[in-house]
Amino acid sequence: MNTVLQAHGLGKKYGRRWALTDCDLEVPAGHVVGLVGPNGAGKSTLLNLAVGMLTPSAGTVEVLGAPAGAQQAKVGYVAQDTPTYARLSIADHLRLGRRLNPAWDESLAQRRIQHLKLDPKQRAGKLSGGQRAQLALTLGLAKRPELLILDEPVAALDPLARREFLQDLMEAVAEQELSVLLSSHLVSDVERACDYLIVLVDSRVQVSGEIDTLLATHFRLTGPRRDQKDLPRDQHVVTASHTDRQSTYLIRTGQPILDPAWTVTQLTLEDLVLAYMGRDVQPERPVLEVQR
């Protein structure tokens, strides 16, 4: 199976603080991957390592089977806040794209600008947030990459612009053979658009995998109070809470749950993400935000 992103023991240190540690990932091609986590969890650091804008302090990261940064033409990157050149016109941006990218698809770029009803003579600095994001997406798609990486692409957009952006992105995924890796701190964006999930909290990957598989293997158990050590060994506890009489566990297991004492409920994606975000991983967590 082709992998778009492969990381082994990957880590990045700013000064004395690790922004990303012990990151092991193997993301197969053909997915729309959602990288989810709170602000400052290390999402941008991981994405910047993947595009080769940062070099690892530990471990390795490969993108499309080669060291990160080695295949610039095959990887598109839309950075946080979808930066464009404020003083350049839309036509200038397309000209730049044409000059800088060997596989540039001019007709795709023109079609998109027309579809968005943008005036090519308009300067990027005069565009609305949604239009600027769409321009950045146009550049990213017309490059015809095998992997498109987007850092919080819709975070700053209003609901309508957000929906339109994701519609266009999904349409491109359906049309082109394109893998996508996008970060977000909103589960609702990820739920519709993504079919693969990476949860990153406190500079560590908490869980990753195909969303269908994750949902099929995580359950909430509620029942009479029971000690964690009395659970079957194949039930990995994600979170646990107890009252005097009742226990509630959120577990991951590939096996059927046979114990009739438990009431078993399936999780929504939001439950699952929140469970991994909310558990105490490192109590002594430093509260520094990664440079954005």
């Binding site: 266009d168 519709r192 993504c194």
Partner: peptide
Amino acid sequence: TVKDVVAALAINPNT
């Protein structure tokens, strides 16, 4: 078509 559903609902084509 898959493309039209995807474009209308902003969902993943695999869905």
